[in-house]
Amino acid sequence: MTELLLVATGLRKSYGQTAALDNADFSIRPGEVVAVMGPSGSGKSTLLHCLAGIVRPDGGQVRYRHRELSEMSDAERSALRRDEFGFVFQFGQLVPELTCVENVALPLRLNGVKRKEAERRATEWLDRLEVTEVSAKRPGEVSGGQGQRVAVARALVTGPRVVFADEPTGALDSLNGERVMELLTAAARDTRAAVVLVTHEARVAAYSDREVVVRDGRARDLEHAA
């Protein structure tokens, strides 16, 4: 079986008196889509933030390709998020002043890719996500479904090894939501990116390979236990 890409063991995280994570385990392999499910307030998003190195857990370990995240410097973790991780959130993630193609090209530009080349690659991803027509528009001028496809294109344009998607279809109707899921999972499979998919919707989770359920901050990862 393929080696694990990202592994979390015994994660704990509290906000004040409230335990958001209480001994959570998680693992994912390259190219795998894992749904993180559970009711609101169960700790799903906190788990995602810890896995992505956005939030530092109070206890437990997160290992990405054999490296412990807590042992990295802030700069190293930032570089990791920029170079190896991609992010899709529910909404409000595109820069309103930039056009859609500039939004998708942005992570490449931050990595030092020249404008022309960055926009060429961004356009390829917009084509793939079936939103070529919004290329020159600003986020405020496109529909929710189109905006979310642009966000997916931006998450994938750098060729990340892991895509973190937190309720990526939460603000969309079911038809648009399903199309976004189809495109996201197909693109991730083609590029062998792993997808950590936080969702409370079973129909969205059905696009995953398996699920990890979080309840009261505890995540039971059967694959991890095995």
Binding site: A202, R203, A205, A206, E211
Partner: peptide, 12 residues
């Protein structure tokens, strides 16, 4: 839940 999701994946 796992059993339901297994079938939902198949249908998807």
């Amino acid at each position: 839940r796992s059993e339901h999701l297994r079938l939902m994946r198949e249908l998807t």
